[in-house]
Amino acid sequence: MAIMGSRKHLKRFKSPEHWPIHPKEFTWTVKPSPGPHAIEGSLPLLVIVRDILQIADNAREARIIINNGEVLVDGRVRKDYKFPVGFMDVIQLPKAGKAYRVLPDEQGRLVLHPIEEGNTEFKLCRVQDKVTIKGGKTQLNFHDGRNCLTDGDYKTGDVIVLNIPDQEIKDSIKFEDGTIGLITGGKHIGEKGTVKQINITRSSMPNTVVIETDGNSFQTLKDYVFVLGKDKPMISLPGGN
């Protein structure tokens, strides 16, 4: 039993701090499947249905709801109750007429931020890197593990607006001075502000960005900045825009 538990489940006291479960209530919780998001930055679908949305009283009821195809992630039905849901994913409950975007709050916890049904047709994806493949096409690799081919001129750090679920590029947000950025890591996680200066180093030191917010400014790593728009965010955020 211990071997089976270690493969299929995760001990609660070892679960990430942002999971909304009591570490001592039971011994085990569900272990996420391998997928687009690492365990440190994701929530299993069962935890979302049972513990966050509370539309199921227990794990069995949550599995039934998920297996019936009542939950969509990025426009696709997901029937794996262990599927890892992470930053910027769009969750829809068509029967209930509700939709959410997964975002960090200022404590670094992943939260389900309610969105209007009309905002479920697109997703923001940060370009992590890009490669040239056979035929001269450029493949963009995104923060959520997906990728797409493009002829466009995009750089690492730019954010692509993807239609979902077909993954067609609808628009883009350049990583540049004056854009609005959401901080996704470090002590300023969950805060947003204006990109004032991008510092590119020519050494092993990481690139940094100066962010201005409410008259104050701070420096953070470039990799922690997720741009959301030029003059205002394209999406609503926890606590308002």
Rank of each mutant, 00 (worst) to 15 (best):
K8E: 14
L10S: 01
F13L: 10
S15F: 00
P16E: 03
W19N: 05
P20Y: 03
P23G: 01
E25M: 06
E25R: 14
K31T: 00
S33Q: 00
G35T: 00
P36E: 00
G41W: 04
L43K: 09
L43V: 01
L45N: 03
V49D: 06
D51T: 03
Q54H: 13
Q54W: 02
I55C: 10
R63N: 09
I64N: 14
N67W: 06
N67F: 02
V71T: 03
V71P: 12
V71M: 06
L72C: 09
L72I: 05
D74Q: 01
R76W: 03
R78K: 14
Y81D: 05
K82T: 03
P84H: 00
G86W: 05
G86L: 06
V90T: 11
V90Y: 09
A96L: 15
G97T: 07
K98C: 03
A99F: 05
Y100M: 06
Y100H: 05
R101H: 07
L103M: 15
Q107F: 09
H113F: 13
H113K: 07
E117F: 01
E117Y: 02
C125S: 14
Q128L: 12
V131Y: 11
T132E: 15
G135A: 01
G136F: 02
G136Y: 02
N141W: 10
D144S: 02
R146H: 12
C148A: 14
T150Q: 12
D153Q: 14
Y154E: 10
G157T: 04
G157D: 07
V159M: 11
I160M: 13
N163Y: 11
N163V: 04
D166A: 13
Q167N: 14
E168F: 11
I169Q: 14
D171L: 02
D171I: 00
S172G: 08
I173G: 06
G186H: 05
G186Y: 08
H188Q: 15
K192H: 15
K196Y: 01
K196N: 11
T201G: 02
S204I: 14
M205T: 12
T208W: 07
E212C: 02
T213R: 15
N216M: 14
Y224K: 10
V227P: 13
K230L: 09
P233W: 02
L237H: 08
N241H: 11
